[in-house]
Structure formats: C-alpha cells, structure tokens
Nucleic acid binder design. Structure first.
Lengths: 131, 131
DNA sequence: TCAATACTTGCATTGTGACGCAAATACGCA
DNA sequence: TGCGTATTTGCGTCACAATGCAAGTATTGA
C-alpha cells in the first residue's frame, strides 16, 4: 500500500476548479455581499450589541439614512440569513442569527485552514478534505 | 457593591451605535466586499485548494473571464488582505493569507458570540465585551 | 537589441446597488 | 369605520464596480 491515504492538492487552479470541496459553498457571495455594505455593517453591529430584537424604526435612529433604506437593508439581511424577522402587531423586530452566522464563519475558517500548506507537515496539504 | 461588574447591553440601537466595541472594526466592509463577488470567490477557492502560490495566467484558466479581469481581481484581493503577491521574474504568484483571513473570521465569530443573549445565563448579554 | 512571455493599465460599455421621496400597505385602537 | 403608527414598495437618480479589448510595461532569453 503506497499512497492511498495521502492525497495531494490539485496540481493547477484549473484542476482545483474541477474538484468540489467545502470551500466552494462556504465561500458564499450572497452572505458576504450582505456584509459588504458599510451601512448594513453598522446596522448589524447596532442590533448585535443590543442583544435583542430591534424594530426598524429604532434601528433607523442609529444611522443617517432614510427609514425606507433601513427597511430594505434589514429585509436583505434577513434573506441572506444574517438576521431573522419577527412581526408583532405592526412592528417588525429583527435580531441577529448569532448561531448560524458564527457557524458559517467558523466553518469557512476551518475549511480554509484545511488547505493551508502548513497543516500538512510533509509534502502539501489537502488530505482529501479541501477538495 | 451593587452593579459594578454586571454590565448590561445598550438599551437601544442608538445607544449601541454610540458605544464602540470589537464588532465595529471586525465587521469590516472592505474585507467582505472583496469576498462578495462570485468571480473573486471562485478565484480564492481555486488558489486555496491548490495550497500554493498560483500565477495570474494559471488562475485565469479556471474561470471564464478575461485575463485582465483576473489580474484586477487578484490585485484587489491582495489589497484587501485576502491574498499576498510575490513576484518572481515576470510571473506573479498569489497565495491565500490563510492565517490572517482565518483569524479575522474567527475573531468576528467570537465578537458576535459575546453579544448573544444566551451567552449570559441571567439577564442579558454584554459583560462589557460586546461594547 | 529584438522578440516573446506575463502581467498591468486605460478606456468605454454595461449592469447593479444605494439612496431619497412619495405613495401604498398593514395593524391596532378609538 | 376612520385615524395614526410602523413598515414596505415603486420609481427615478446617481455612483461605482465588473467586464472586454487594446495598448502599455516589465522581464527573460535568443
């Protein structure tokens, strides 16, 4: 038995593109697009620091954009899985999906780490985990 | 001594915006903007899975966009701290900054978790760590 | 020095996203 | 039912980002 367990990384980026791995779905543009806007980032930070559900109107007071803009941003963040909405009467409370977001971030970090050359002491990474 | 250690989260998003915490700089739009583009995401995945530095030309073979576009994307990712560039002769090798990127992601996850209501068994989160 | 390779940069086009305002909708309450 | 509050949606504007092509720069080797 020569090299059954020992798996090497793809030789070229072209090969890498062909072999699917955890990174491919963890590196999700939809999630990061949601986090990429400065206004949205501050909205998330506000809600997160409050440790509770916040109404659209409340959140709108923490930044300088129109309430309608905040409403759209929060809806987008909910669709992206960063926030969750809960309607009570006529007000909508948005809260951070702490668990889900943290898990996504950590899984991505783990997947990236699996690809690190340093993670394989001798002769390349990718023990069949990175792709 | 009544309530010196016990710190409560800000009452409203407006208050939350005023008190700076780790989240504010970890939730960095520049980083996430870099990760938000589908083309860039696939470039990162390709390079990461290769576990080595890849040239611009090599990377360009793994997606359907012009070489010049790939060149620009890689330069942008390097500026954002996701990749690092190393020039050898006339070819430029880009590799993933595994350590830095993983740390950023995990620090963000940690900071978010600090704000979770569940992280404080009794009466709210924010032990002075989230803001 | 000339030519080929590897990449970068200028430029025009196109598309997408953020924003504000105004109008519309959804609820709760008198 | 009618009003006020809370939020969403339609629409036009503006800015920026992605893309491809062509031209430019850098570096190696003949």
């Amino acid at each position: 038995m020569t090299q059954i367990r020992k798996k090497r990384p793809p030789a070229t980026p072209r090969h890498a593109a062909a072999c699917a791995g955890p990174l491919d779905h963890l590196l999700d543009p939809a999630l990061f697009k949601a986090l990429a806007d400065p206004t949205r980032a501050s909205l998330i930070a506000c809600i997160a620091k409050c440790s509770r559900g916040c109404s659209v109107g409340e959140v709108a007071e923490c930044c300088n954009v129109d309430l309608s803009v905040v409403s759209r941003h929060l809806a987008l963040l909910a669709r992206a899985g960063v926030l969750e909405a809960q309607k009570q009467g006529r007000t909508v409370y948005y809260r951070v999906r702490y668990t889900d977001v943290c898990r996504s971030l950590r899984l991505l970090a783990d997947a990236l780490e699996e690809c690190t050359p340093a993670s394989a002491p001798k002769g390349g990474a990718c023990h069949g985990k990175c792709c």
